[in-house]
């Protein structure tokens, strides 16, 4: 999740960068340019420690992954240069491509549903549940975020098993015919994993959107109501447009959680049955640590990073422009 947050913040950083650019243009005209230059030097000194950590723990691993992806390497003996052969394998082996498709199917559950539901829930909580009820509902919704994903995976594994609570409930209301091992059935395994994802990510989206709603000028709603607008009209004309930046962040974080999913899937299904829930994260793990194909695993990881960027960048741009 922290990785996801890292990728989300360029949207915030960029206006700052532009401000610096303006600063610099000004500094050429103003005689006190020297002083400003010293100021910025001091600024850089403040940034350098963090930047060093960023370089060592984020940029260097990224560069190493790209480098490994060009070799055939078992992790410890000398590596052989193979150029782009690993990428050719990633893009031609059906088993590896299938994991990428599964990742995109997870986007529906991990991202689109939690963000949509989050918007509705947040607006209901914002309108109806004020005071203590609001705090309680926020806490309850956010709770899944606090529980480690591995624990969530184990709990849901029990709930969704053949003798689990969910099937007991279904039998109790007369739906005994549809009970099954939800995580072990080819047709339901991926949606079942998706439901765990919804449960985890809904609270995050709701709380983030609620915070955004608190910033919306109450006067807007008041004047809308004076004009006779209903709940849905308010929601569509005021709430959603005002929250574009928050929605952008929600989409970014949840899409990354879907495409780079590992822990929930690994604990609940391990990628099975068959390859029904195999996602790139799991395949990278198997390739690197069971097959010792570090190069191929790195290539798949790089392809995944590129895909994430291709999906995320347009969202970033949209939410940024709309925010202005």
């Amino acid at each position: 999740m922290s990785q996801a947050a890292d990728k989300a913040d360029p949207a915030r950083a960029l206006p700052g960068a532009r401000a610096e650019a303006i600063d610099r243009r000004l500094s050429r005209r103003i005689p006190l340019a020297q002083g400003i230059r010293r100021q910025t030097l001091v600024g850089w000194l403040f940034v350098v420690p963090a930047l060093l950590f960023y370089a060592v723990f984020v940029l260097q691993p990224l560069a190493l992954t790209v480098q490994y992806s060009l070799y055939r390497w078992d992790g410890f003996s000398p590596a052989t240069w193979v150029g782009l052969a690993n990428y050719a394998s990633v893009l031609s082996e059906p088993k590896l491509l299938e994991t990428l498709f599964n990742a995109f199917r997870l986007v529906l559950f991990f991202s689109l549903i939690p963000v949509t539901l989050g918007l509705v829930t947040a607006s209901v909580v914002h309108r109806v549940a004020t005071g203590r009820l609001g705090t309680v509902s926020r806490t309850v919704l956010f709770l899944p975020q606090v529980i480690p994903l591995v624990a969530a995976g184990i709990i849901w594994g029990r709930l969704l098993s053949l003798s689990g609570l969910i099937n007991q409930g279904l039998t109790a209301i007369g739906l005994g015919d549809i009970t099954r091992a939800w995580l072990g059935d080819f047709d339901t395994a991926l949606p079942a994993v998706g439901i765990i994802g919804i449960w985890v990510l809904l609270g995050f989206c709701t709380v983030l959107l609620l915070t955004g709603m608190a910033k919306i000028d109450a006067g807007l709603y008041e004047s809308a109501r004076l004009d006779g607008a209903g709940w849905f009209q308010e929601f569509r004309a005021i709430t959603v447009p005002s929250l574009r930046y928050e929605i952008g962040v929600c989409l970014t974080v949840t899409i990354i959680a879907a495409l780079a999913a590992f822990d929930i899937v690994y604990v609940s299904t391990g990628g099975g049955p068959g390859n029904a829930t195999a996602v790139p994260g799991i395949q990278i793990y198997i390739l690197a640590f069971l097959e010792r194909q570090v190069g191929l695993a790195s290539a798949l990881a790089v392809v995944l990073v590129i895909l994430v960027l291709l999906v995320i960048l347009p969202i970033q741009r949209l939410s940024r422009e709309d925010a202005r």
Binding site: R18, L41, L52, A55, L59, Y68, F76, A79
Partner: peptide, 28 residues
């Protein structure tokens, strides 16, 4: 946006360069 940043980048680059030998070549 900021040419002076190149200095910092240079130091970062040296960190990255240390990794540029073929993997596995040194320790085995």
């Amino acid at each position: 946006a900021w040419p002076a940043a190149r200095l910092v980048v240079l130091t970062l680059a040296t960190i990255l360069v240390t990794a540029c030998a073929a993997p596995g070549a040194v320790t085995t």
